[in-house]
Amino acid sequence: MVEELLNRFAQFSIYKSSFNNVMGTILEVKNLAMDFGGLRALDNLDLDVKNGEIVALIGPNGSGKTTFFNCVTGIYTPTEGDIRDSQHGKNRRLSSINGLRPNLVTKKGLARTFQNIRLFSNMSVLENVMIGRHCRTRSGIAGAVFRNRATKEEEQKIVDDSYEVLKKIGLADYVNELAVNLPYGAQRRLEIARAMATEPFMLLLDEPAAGMNIRETKELDELILRIRENEGISILMIEHDMKLVMSLSDRIYVMDYGRKIADGTPEQIKNDPVVIKAYLGKEPDA
């Protein structure tokens, strides 16, 4: 009994110290490991994102980047380790999101996009974004059937808010278009818009520039910066386009075989021999 109390107290003080030490940290991952049967896809991974940062996660194919995303967003439950995030970006105290269901993770303020576009193809662009508003609204079955004033107002607000988001992302012209009919680059942006509609404090973008041409990539570059500057949303992204990564990110994490092999500013990463070896497969001076 006493022991338990002491334990609690100790835990509390640890939290408190972390609260003091990592001021501004909004996502903290410690010793994360993920096993698929006998395969260790992630091993002893540490990562943190501070408020307002753009952090990139790079690494060769199959190094576990998307698995990491899936662990953070609750699609997988990590085998070991701890993922903690702040309460919707406001409260600096971190709380664990390990094994939380994906919808609850999103509700806490971590929204993601997918590597292979996963839009609701047969819904209109606006409706796609309106789905994003789902977790911030509350009208239920009774409201839908009786259509009382509160429900009507909420519905109108969902439409208005969603349209605002679309305007910000620059998709307002497509409002009533079916998502599946959008050009590729616009579909990628719609995924970001949909994620933004959930009012996140942090966006997790899984290869946002994949398959985009140079012009579209440039637009995306500006869009991501704009999201950070105007909305104050931090960004963690997986990306293979090195030009985009180097120009955008404040810090970069490099992964290989499920482990973190380096982290630091773009300059540091560019010149890191370990990173070069992982990518090119040989000693830089050989």
Binding site: T73, I75, R101, P102, N103, T106, K107, A111, R112, F114, R118, L119, F120, S121, N122, M123, E127, M130, I131, G132, H134, C135, R136, T137, S139, G140, I141, G143, A144, V145, R147, T151, E154, E155, I158, R194, A195, T198
Partner: peptide, 26 residues
Amino acid sequence: RLQNSRIGRAWIALREDEVACQAMGI
């Protein structure tokens, strides 16, 4: 009415893509 409500949209999203639907907070 259900079809054109918040819940109706959630159903359609579920039909379109279960994983994305959950990742969007449903």
